[in-house]
């Protein structure tokens, strides 16, 4: 009770521990990746969009990679790769290697660049789209029997590139929004 007669209520702040913070960010990342892969898989049901397959999972993984300076990107890339292998035919395993390798390159490349600029993220997502498919093609050489490179470029690599690049602005924004909403903090 103060001299003026008002009761002072003290604010109670709860300090989030490092582990709690990591867990929360991990859960947000997992939700973002899961949403990406489910939308990606379900999008084929929309008439006319059966062959439009932007790699939303990769875009999401790129966002998390570009926006983390620690080593959290590696775990997120592994989780994204695991989801990719689960939701796709073909050998089990190359999707994880492809995703981790691609995110590692993106992590290394993005460091000297000006981060957190939408245009930089879009360019990185487009670059990742080509890189990931070339890595996957090389992995298929080891694990399976890939088609001739010209055919792979025409049927898989190029469509993957342009469709992912086209969807990148929207999905990067959506991932950023999802982060802001669920973490309660601004992206930067």
């Amino acid at each position: 009770m103060t001299a003026s007669g008002y009761r002072v209520r003290r604010a109670i702040y709860r300090v989030e521990s490092r582990q709690e913070l990591r867990l929360r960010l991990g859960l947000i990342a997992a939700a973002a990746l899961l949403a990406s892969v489910l939308v990606e898989s379900g999008l084929g049901a929309v008439p006319g969009l059966f062959r439009f397959r932007p790699d939303l999972l990769l875009i999401s993984a790129v966002w998390w990679t570009v926006n983390s300076r620690g080593s959290g990107w590696a775990a997120i890339a592994l989780a994204a790769g695991l989801l990719r292998d689960v939701f796709s035919a073909g050998p089990f395993g190359p999707g994880m290697v492809e995703m981790v390798a691609t995110c590692w390159v993106i992590f290394m490349v993005s460091r000297p660049l000006v981060r957190h600029r939408p245009l930089v993220e879009i360019v990185l997502a487009a670059f990742a789209a080509v890189l990931s498919q070339i890595v996957y093609y090389l992995l298929l050489e080891v694990f399976s029997h890939p088609p001739a490179f010209a055919a792979a470029w025409r049927t898989a690599i190029f469509p993957h590139f342009w469709q992912t690049a086209a969807a990148a602005p929207v999905w990067l924004w959506a991932t950023g929004r999802m982060y802001s909403v669920f973490s309660g903090e601004r992206r930067r």
Partner: peptide, 21 residues
Amino acid sequence: MSAEFRSNRSLAVPAAVALGL
């Protein structure tokens, strides 16, 4: 992005990921 998330430069996560792979 939280500073906690950014500043973790430990090699534990990449090592665990590599082992997992």
